[in-house]
């Protein structure tokens, strides 16, 4: 294509094997108007520097792999376009608040442990044989939790969350949204088994209602709302009301 321009991408480089400090490396990248930041990074990897390290996969904003700080703000790099950042430079860094594994790749293990803590699966009243067919769930019942089932675990909300920055043990926006998702599902009675995670010191009370998590979410999930609804639940639980009402 003829409308190729050049933009500078400044990438944060860090290799735990060899570096004591991270550094910025600059690349001049030709781009066309349809190219994303991710495609810019792929250009670098293919043609300029095969050692630049970043995660990606679906390149259509559904797998959640390619989150990074772009000019200081958490974004999915696949759906952030170089044309919108021209004339640049474009600074790419690993998501804030996470340990860096290498360059733009962060350590996600802590998040996976948090998922385990909130028991992210249906806890049902009784096992029914599959031959009885699907449960009924009206569109209204589906709507009650649907938004919170849209999380792609891209972790942008953790990079946005100042509390997570201060306390890496905070269960945090995505995991608490998922907790809420299961609690709100008409097929689930697991509220009480998730209550310990919600009520813990590192649970919902850690949130200070900044709301940046909801602002950066690429899928329209509203973690702040989920967390704060659970503050109400948690308070009711403290007063013993929630359990008396049967967990819903």
């Amino acid at each position: 294509m003829t409308d190729t321009r050049t933009i500078r991408i400044e990438a944060l480089r860090f290799n735990p094997e060899t570096d004591s400090e991270p550094r910025l490396q600059r690349y001049e990248v030709p781009f066309t108007p349809d190219m994303s930041v991710l495609q810019g990074l792929q250009y670098i990897k293919d043609h300029l520097d095969g050692s630049l390290t970043f995660r990606w996969s679906c390149r259509m904003a559904v797998c959640g792999s390619c989150g990074m700080m772009i000019n200081g703000r958490p974004h999915l790099s696949c759906e952030t376009f170089l044309r919108d950042l021209y004339p640049g430079p474009v600074r790419v860094e690993p998501l804030d608040h996470f340990p860096v594994q290498r360059d733009l790749a962060i350590d996600q293990a802590g998040f996976l442990d948090k998922l385990a803590a909130i028991k992210p699966y249906i806890v049902s009243a009784k096992e029914r044989p599959l031959s009885e067919g699907p449960s009924r769930q009206t569109p209204a019942q589906l709507d009650a939790y649907y938004q919170y089932s849209q999380c792609i675990n891209c972790l942008l909300c953790y990079a946005a969350c100042p509390q997570f920055g201060l306390n890496p043990d905070f269960i945090g926006p995505a995991a608490l949204s998922l907790l809420h998702r299961y609690n709100l599902d008409s097929r689930d009675i697991g509220w009480s088994v998730r209550a310990d995670a919600a009520n813990a010191d590192v649970g919902v009370w850690e949130c200070t209602v900044v709301g940046y998590c909801s602002e950066v979410c690429p899928k329209g999930v509203d973690p702040m709302h989920a967390v704060n609804e659970n503050k109400v639940n948690s308070a009711l639980d403290y007063l013993g009301v929630k359990r008396l009402l049967g967990g819903r």
Binding site: I122, R128, L130, P134, Q137, T138, S149, Y182, D188
Partner: peptide, 22 residues
Amino acid sequence: TEEMVQLERWGCPWSRKPDGSI
């Protein structure tokens, strides 16, 4: 079909008709 039902039991948010069936 039994695998679709299994996924439903595990929480898959299948789209529904107004009466709550699949």
